[in-house]
Write a protein that binds this DNA or RNA. Structure first.
Length: 203
DNA sequence: AGGAAGATCTACT
DNA sequence: GTAGATCTTCCTA
């Protein structure tokens, strides 16, 4: 039992939430709660930064060269976790696309809300703003690896899922080009919460 | 079987 | 601000 948890009313996001254009889902995911269950302990972070990826027409997407064994989840059921390795880091995505398409949303940064002690155990940093302010950092802090690939994020029984608070919170959404991609689309597909200290970059 | 790429991170200056 | 480490997956032979 967490001793310091205030009573926050949370509701899990439905499958339908993810059955839309990835860019829209990426924007809508800002401010939502990512929950990682380890044994019965809940690690919780607010999503403050995301990026949208499309299917075959997006040169930066894992789906760009067609369906393969490792990326087939991008065409599959929406609302599932899609996890893979880049530069020795596991990256967490939520599968999101309209019916009969492919796409995913990369979770790039979190604001730690609960289980900070555990997160610091998995990532040896003292600075709170360093804990989950990057896609590879947050997977390490929450102990997310390939084993959780395909996890249903819309099921409260899962080891990872995403909720929203009942009480609405106001914030400004900013956008930019995606980070670290060599051939980007002529669209701004990175979204983040303005002036939140946990986003990975300011611009 | 081996090489190269990659949606990154850290440590250094 | 940038160089070097990192390691899984894919591609070609």
């Amino acid at each position: 039992m967490p001793t310091n948890s205030q009573k926050i009313e949370m509701k899990i996001l439905s499958r339908n939430f993810y059955l839309k254009d990835p860019a829209l889902v990426a924007k809508n995911l800002l401010g939502k709660m990512l929950v990682r269950k380890i044994n019965s302990k809940l690690l919780v972070g607010k999503i403050v930064e995301t990026e949208a990826y499309y299917g075959e027409k997006d040169p930066a997407s894992r789906a760009y060269r067609g369906m393969k064994n490792f990326n087939k989840l991008m065409w599959g059921e929406v609302g599932r976790a899609f996890i893979y390795m880049v530069h020795a880091n596991w990256l967490l995505n939520a599968v999101a696309h309209p019916e009969n398409e492919a796409g995913a949303v990369l979770i790039r940064a979190l604001e730690p809300l609960n289980g900070v002690k555990e997160m610091k155990k998995y990532r040896r940093v003292s600075d709170l703003t360093e804990l989950t302010s990057g896609p590879g950092k947050l997977t390490k802090a929450m102990k997310i690896t390939k084993e959780l690939n395909g996890t249903d994020l819309t099921n409260i029984e899962s080891e990872i899922y995403i909720c929203h608070r009942k009480a609405k919170e106001a914030f400004k959404i900013r956008s930019s080009h995606r980070i670290g991609v060599s051939s980007d689309l002529p669209l701004k597909l990175r979204f983040y919460i303005e002036s939140n200290p946990y986003v990975s970059r300011k611009t």
